[in-house]
Write a protein that binds this DNA or RNA. Structure first.
Lengths: 240, 240
DNA sequence: CTCTTCGTTCCGTCTCACGGAACTCATTGT
DNA sequence: ACAATGAGTTCCGTGAGACGGAACGAAGAG
């Protein structure tokens, strides 16, 4: 029953709702009566909320999610540097960690005129399609690389890297430069530059600047991103 | 059983762990064997995580919490203005909403040298002890005020307002000025100025600037906070 | 070496989660 | 006007599995 509950909550991805009863039941392959009962229970608990007949994820979930320790400490350490980076570049800043073969975005800073990205805090994208993901991949060791190469590479745009050789080469470059570039591999029109954040010798996260390809100037952005990522790494060493 | 599960997750407040089995069992008034079973289930689901014998809240919770729609839309609308405000003041910025008689912080921006506040995203404080809370209180209607006054006012510091008359008077001032001030009522050494965010004629949130009392200059901060809050209100009207 | 204290395992009891079926209520099509 | 569809909801008999007391093992503390 617990399993069913969390399956239902997952059904709310990626928007958090609003969803109708039947949709939820269908996505989870559950009988309507079962779905209804569980949703009623969850509503009573404040985990989901009902608004004009539809269900949405509720505040209790938000509150608990906000205090998840790993993410919270990382964000706490990284946010000031992300703000520095934002002020220096005026572009969208992302902080992401790895979970399996995905990158999960943990924090984001955007300006008024920000481009709309397929990423959102709490969202997932394939490691191989994003700057943040490629950095994490390049520093996470051989076993992970083997696993990535053991299945076909996912594609989000015509520019996504789907050739294993091409990716391998790029991973090598990233390891040398300490930086990853990405051009329209996650979303057309969008480019990104990313740098790794370390703790105790291992990558724990990555920082990136995303912007329209038209404005993409790697040489200008590279030092700023590197500096910021390094700053976060230094704080992490002390605090965690 | 659902209820027990969420009771257990609440036991992780406010830090998210790490907690020992017995502590969790004790906080929830559950037998050890029951607590163990549930924690095992939750661990398997990725909702909690086990690290050297202790339990912590896990990433699945973080991801789901991040996509809770109400909070997400509000944050999305407010963040650019919060950054403006941060750049103008270089002080800690908060965004909070009301839940019952508490304020729940939904977003926060802080600089490198930031003061450590009792607030954190996902954290709760009594409405009457914070700038954000007092603003929300002042614009949420009479029923809420009645409820607040129907029980003794909570105290966080020697300066917290515990006199009903005093609070009533201040509520009046807030309604006139469209701004709330707070001096060491939530934490000694800390002051704050807050302004309401509206949507469809009702308060939905409040924005605040927090800083050491020594640097507190209401006259300088007031216009910036008001402008930012107004900006958010305008965006909300369009988008939601 | 004994006394705690914590995590873990086991198992008999009985609750309550489960989901099929039937019902209501709009909405749509003919 | 009247079926027909598809939504949300209610009901209830069955049986899986949640429950928690008790006993066990391990690791410190004094």
């Amino acid at each position: 029953m617990l399993e069913k509950t969390w399956l239902m909550l997952d059904a709310f991805r990626p928007t958090g709702g609003p969803l109708r009863l039947v949709d939820i039941a269908h996505r989870c392959q559950l009988p309507k009566s079962t779905a209804l009962r569980l949703l009623n229970d969850l509503t009573e608990l404040g985990v989901v909320v009902r608004r004009d007949g539809r269900y949405l994820l509720g505040r209790r979930l938000f509150e608990l999610g906000s205090i998840v320790p790993l993410e919270r400490d990382l964000r706490h350490a990284a946010l000031p540097f992300m703000h520095d980076l934002f002020e220096a570049t005026r572009e969208t800043i992302h902080l992401g960690v790895r979970d399996g073969l995905d990158v999960v975005y943990v924090e984001k800073i955007r300006g008024h005129e920000s481009l709309s990205l397929p990423s959102a805090v709490g969202g997932r994208l394939p490691l191989t399609c994003t700057g943040v993901g490629k950095v994490l991949l390049a520093y996470s060791g051989q076993e992970l690389l083997d696993e990535v190469f053991s299945r076909p590479l996912r594609r989000l745009t015509p520019r996504s890297i789907v050739d294993a050789g091409r990716l391998e080469e790029e991973i090598g470059q990233i390891q040398v430069q300490g930086l990853a570039y990405e051009r329209e591999e996650a979303q057309l029109g969008n480019a990104c530059i990313a740098a790794p954040i370390f703790r105790g010798g291992r990558v724990v996260a990555a920082l990136s600047v995303s912007l329209p390809v038209a404005r993409f100037q790697p040489a200008r952005l590279a030092p700023a991103v590197k500096t910021a990522a390094l700053g976060v790494s230094r704080v992490l060493v002390k605090s965690l």
